[in-house]
Design a protein around this nucleic acid. Structure first.
Lengths: 113, 113
DNA sequence: AATAGTAACTAATAAAAACAAAGTGACTAG
DNA sequence: CTAGTCACTTTGTTTTTATTAGTTACTATT
């Protein structure tokens, strides 16, 4: 009747939780990019090369839903929507920087075709 | 002929490189799990709940290819294949731990259905 | 010895996610 | 009036992931 605590593994729940967000393509990049300051949709798309409108839109909704980014509409006339990190999002930025350092030092060059 | 340095953004290449690996589902979890010590295929599958044989096999090949894990075959008779982190993989472990801490403190609970 | 069970995979197929391209509605510049 | 930007949404097509079912080599059981 061992409740599964005796043997050993059961992968870290917190890390697993982190990867529900970061294990999806683009999320890490979006947060890292917003770490340099708020940006609006088009700027963000340009800053994250390769992402498409549809996916960016989708990711931003998700990130807003888990309260890592905020969406603020400035109803101009030239309407502008600005995306920024929340506190929680900001707290991730330094970790992402370490991730970047790790990648530079431990990953082989950008596996090109 | 501006080489794209004038305006501003262009998301961090190193972070982007990190996410070529970590932005794929399971990779982070696999590395975090191996961070607690080497495991063989079946143990790993049990330790990472939800992953399937096919995907685990695939991920392990990828991770071996970028030299983050090693695969060593012990030709028993009871043949056993053991997977372990390389130096590069080990260097990621502390960062993953921070990621876990961040998740616990900044992410809403496991969005259940 | 035949039957069933585990380990470590591979193969085939189904389902989900990502991508590319175009379209929408509001507005500005020429 | 035409063309272009912004912020998206919609519609396919392609890639990735996931699920299911083998396969080969052994071990444990009966």
């Amino acid at each position: 009747m061992e409740t599964e605590t005796s043997e050993h593994n059961e992968c870290d729940g917190a890390v697993s939780l982190a990867f529900t967000i970061l294990g999806k393509r683009w999320n890490g990049m979006i947060i890292a990019t917003l770490g340099k300051g708020p940006l609006c949709f088009a700027e963000l798309r340009r800053a994250v090369p390769g992402i498409s409108d549809a996916v960016l839109s989708d990711r931003l909704s998700e990130l807003a839903e888990v309260t890592l980014v905020t969406r603020s509409v400035n109803p101009g006339p030239p309407i502008a929507v600005s995306y920024a990190l929340t506190d929680g999002g900001e707290r991730l930025v330094p970790v992402l920087e370490q991730l970047g350092q790790w990648a530079s030092s431990s990953l082989p060059s950008p596996v090109k075709a």
